[in-house]
Design a protein around this nucleic acid. Structure first.
Lengths: 133, 133
DNA sequence: TATGCATCCTGTAGCCACTACAGGATCAAG
DNA sequence: CTTGATCCTGTAGTGGCTACAGGATGCATA
């Protein structure tokens, strides 16, 4: 049984974030010492690491919570996990597409600036009346 | 001089968002009618549209505010605008790189699921002890 | 045993950029 | 005169933390 500080170090989840996850019911409440300090077992740490990995993949907290709930053993969890991951994958790809079009527009505006010797093409673009194509 | 509803429609910025921009000092306070209703000129609408375009490019509000501040005429604004845009472009590209690696990891996990007939590879991956490469 | 510093506790507020009300005033049309 | 659309202010909620304030506890050293 280790302290919250050690659990933070071993899981890669910040102390304040651990307490946040506890408040939000994402991970179960840990045991406490007589004086009220939280103590964490290895499986508590594993759960925290699990949530961190989910978050690194960009999975929202409810998704992470759902996946964590599947880790109670059964192999029937696979289709469920796959569904969650697939939905998230689509979100990720949609976001990438958004960013891609932002990137193109920015690159174009910046490039125009280099050829420019009159008005600023960036400001012109942003000020123009027409809606973008 | 038009109402906030019409300004919203013509600028593409939601009414509540317009009021928010005003509170935050992103756009100047518009005139009011005798009864206290906001009235917007064409240039007010142009400013709102400008901020919307910035936001569509993912520019944070302070950046949008800076760019809007440059639209007071001078062509010397170009290098400044280019700097703001370039910094933002880098942020966009960093975010895309993050999403790209999330995407790869998700695709791999989902693919493994299809070949799977034992434990769920997604949960295995998220639960594993080792740090990812 | 005293002291000092690290670590922990709870509770609250802040971040970003909105969005969504509640509860009321005003306007325009029939 | 009533109805319904639109407007007003002010406040709270979203997600996922992060950053305190103000205090209690634990551990090592003098």
């Amino acid at each position: 049984m280790i302290s919250i500080g050690q659990a933070a170090e071993r899981s890669g989840v910040a102390i304040e974030t651990i307490r946040y996850y506890e408040r939000e019911g994402i991970v179960p409440k840990p045991d406490r010492t007589a004086s009220g300090r939280r103590t964490y077992s290895e499986s508590d740490v594993a759960r925290l690491r699990f949530v961190r990995r989910c978050r690194e993949l960009g999975l929202p907290i409810p998704g992470a919570k759902s996946l964590l709930g599947l880790t109670d053993g059964s192999q029937k969890s696979c289709p469920t996990a796959q569904t969650i991951a697939s939905k998230h994958l689509k979100n990720v790809q949609d976001k990438m597409a958004d960013l891609k079009s932002m990137e193109s527009a920015l690159i174009e505006m910046i490039r125009l600036c280099d050829d420019n010797d009159d008005e600023c093409p960036i400001l012109n673009h942003l000020q123009s009346e027409r809606e973008e194509s």
